[in-house]
Design a protein around this nucleic acid. Structure first.
Ligand code: FES
Ligand code: FES
Lengths: 159, 159
DNA sequence: GGAAATCGTTACTTTTTTGTCAAGATTGCA
DNA sequence: TGCAATCTTGACAAAAAAGTAACGATTTCC
């Protein structure tokens, strides 16, 4: 269960944009520089995010990217869903081994766990907006742990 | 955020073993057949699981695999940790772009979210044992949703 | 002891994911 | 208009993950 490179860097780029001041925008070279990735790679990521409607771009001199919607209206769950290409929706279609379809299809003890896990993650992410990721680590950490539901879940484990 | 093939099939193989009766064991060809994967692939997975101490193997005629510990003492969190090769522990070391180290190292707004997310998942998985995955889908589903903490988290999202 | 069945290990191949490049399109400015 | 800055797009290359193959080791049974 891991975060893909696309999710990681895509999210980071959006955080960059979320922390801009009114009227500012950022170009690909700047984006690349600030995230420590190549310009080409940044270009591809922004292309994806643009297609998905998260960012707005302008070409030409003085061009660049900015968020298409207010940062406090963009939920992490939406972002991850796009960057991850809706992988869970057909879980049973992806891990089929040498067959065309999941051997356990129909009655499977694993599916509810994996699907449920995905729900848990999505639920947590849906409670966080891009705007909340701007600012220092300490602040974000506090925010995260104070979210309804997430807090309780973690507490339950601390014996 | 997705489950890798190793996690998926590895988990499935363990569920197979968990559902055996006392004294039974299962060979690689059987395992492969039942999970719809190749024998070679099953062999590799079982090798991993054996190295990690989850299963016990015997060679030769009448050989095969069985669980090394009682199914109700093996938590999914342990399994995933092994099959996923502890990926979160050095998150900042994996996604470094073209640099040697994460650009945001030191003060990062993303890290607490990703690490926290991992904690949530691990917490949920630590409350489920292999034994609980044996049996029909309906049963497992009910079990999953009745677990302390998980239930609340999901409820919170249902507006 | 030898044949058959089984697991153990490492190297190799294929597929998927990541990342790069190069050529094109749009815009602003002088 | 023409140049420079910028995004866009699709093809390509490199790296990682997944899967396969081959050969070796151990055990049982005759
Ligand atoms: S995971 Fe698809 S049927 Fe079990
Ligand atoms: S994810 Fe490593 S510093 Fe932000």
């Amino acid at each position: 269960m891991k975060i893909s490179a696309q999710e990681e860097y895509g999210l980071r780029c959006l955080v960059q944009l979320a922390s801009l001041n009114e009227g500012e925008s950022v170009t690909l070279p700047q984006m690349a520089e600030r995230e420590g990735i190549s310009t080409a790679n940044a270009g591809k990521l922004m292309w994806l995010l643009n297609k998905a409607g998260f960012v707005q771009s302008t070409r030409g001199t003085k061009g660049g990217y900015l968020l298409a919607r207010p940062a406090n209206e963009i939920r992490l769950s939406e972002i991850i869903k796009v960057l991850d290409e809706d992988v869970i929706d057909n879980h049973c279609g992806s891990y089929t081994g040498v067959l065309d379809i999941c051997v356990h299809k129909g009655d499977c003890g694993i599916r509810p766990v994996l699907v449920g896990l995905h729900e848990i993650v999505e639920n947590a992410l849906s409670q966080i907006t891009l705007a909340q990721l701007v600012g220092g680590e300490r602040k974000v950490d506090a925010m995260f742990h104070s979210i309804q539901g997430i807090h309780r879940t973690l507490e339950a484990n601390r014996v």
